[in-house]
């Protein structure tokens, strides 16, 4: 299974702006697919696909990513609707949590003979 940050920086124009004209688009929009493997687990990003609309994206995702009972629930999200942090700002963006060691249980020293702590 995959990590969450390989949403595609996709290169097409925004298809939503073409919707009013009724002219078919050259390429279908890109969707990111998330699958819940079984009840009790989170949805996890598994990949992406192209589809003309949300419903077909869901059907395509079922056919592509759950051919062997890999999931009990699927989310599809238009890739251009995802807001992501950028790799360039990785350090400053996550820096606020970097120096707060007191947020971790290991920060506190407790005598070994105190039980259940």
């Amino acid at each position: 299974m995959s990590m969450s940050d390989d949403t595609t920086a996709h290169v097409e124009g925004d298809p939503a702006t073409d919707l009013g004209t009724g002219t078919p688009q050259a390429t279908w929009p890109l969707y990111e697919v998330f699958v819940r493997g079984k009840r009790g687990l989170n949805h996890v990003h598994v990949g992406s696909l192209h589809a003309p609309d949300d419903r077909m994206a869901l059907h395509n995702a079922r056919n592509l990513y759950t051919r062997r009972n890999e999931g009990v629930s699927i989310w599809v999200v238009r890739a251009d609707a995802i807001t992501a942090s950028s790799p360039e700002e990785k350090d400053p963006f996550f820096a606020p949590s970097g120096d707060k060691v007191y947020r971790h249980p290991t920060f506190y020293s407790i005598p070994d003979d105190v039980p259940h702590l």
């Binding site: 009724g22 688009q25 003309p52 609309d53």
Partner: peptide, 10 residues
Amino acid sequence: ASAYAAKQAR
């Protein structure tokens, strides 16, 4: 499929 999607969106 694209035309159908466009019609539904309209």
